[in-house]
Amino acid sequence: MAKFFIAILICYFFSCEYRKLLEPKSEIDVTIHVKGDINGDGKVNVSDVSMLAAHVKGEKPVK
């Protein structure tokens, strides 16, 4: 049996976290984030632009 690892990069809004799994699993849950999708609905649209504009103006910070 070969030894190897699986690396996962997890991103939440503007920060990313690197996780190293020591042993592979037969099943893993994967969440794919769309670049520019600020509100997390899976689409990049005017809602994301509105949230970004409010964040930049200091009206409503993005969490």
Rank of each mutant, 00 (worst) to 15 (best):
A7T: 11
L22Y: 05
F14A: 04
A2Q: 08
V56Q: 08
K20M: 08
V34D: 00
I8K: 15
D37H: 04
K63R: 06
F4G: 12
P61K: 15
G40Y: 03
D41T: 00
A53C: 03
L52R: 07
F4R: 15
A53E: 09
G40E: 06
P24F: 03
A7I: 08
S50D: 04
I38F: 02
D41I: 00
F13P: 00
S50P: 00
F13E: 13
G36Q: 06
K60Y: 07
K60S: 13
C11K: 12
A53G: 00
R19V: 07
D41H: 01
M1C: 09
L9R: 09
I6A: 09
M1D: 10
C11G: 08
S26F: 06
E59P: 00
A54Q: 11
I32P: 00
V62C: 08
K63T: 11
A53N: 06
N45I: 11
V34N: 03
H55D: 09
V46N: 05
S47M: 11
H55A: 07
G58M: 05
K63S: 11
Y12N: 10
G36Y: 08
V46S: 10
S50L: 12
S15Y: 10
Y18G: 00
I28K: 06
I32E: 13
S15C: 05
I6R: 15
D29C: 02
I10V: 11
I32L: 15
V44K: 08
S15E: 10
V49N: 01
I38V: 15
N45Y: 13
V56T: 13
M1A: 09
L22T: 05
C11I: 02
A54M: 10
I10M: 10
K60D: 10
V62E: 05
S47C: 04
L9C: 06
E17T: 07
S47D: 11
V46F: 15
S47I: 15
V44Y: 15
C11D: 06
G36N: 06
F13H: 10
V44G: 02
G58F: 04
P24Y: 05
K63M: 09
N39Q: 01
E17Y: 11
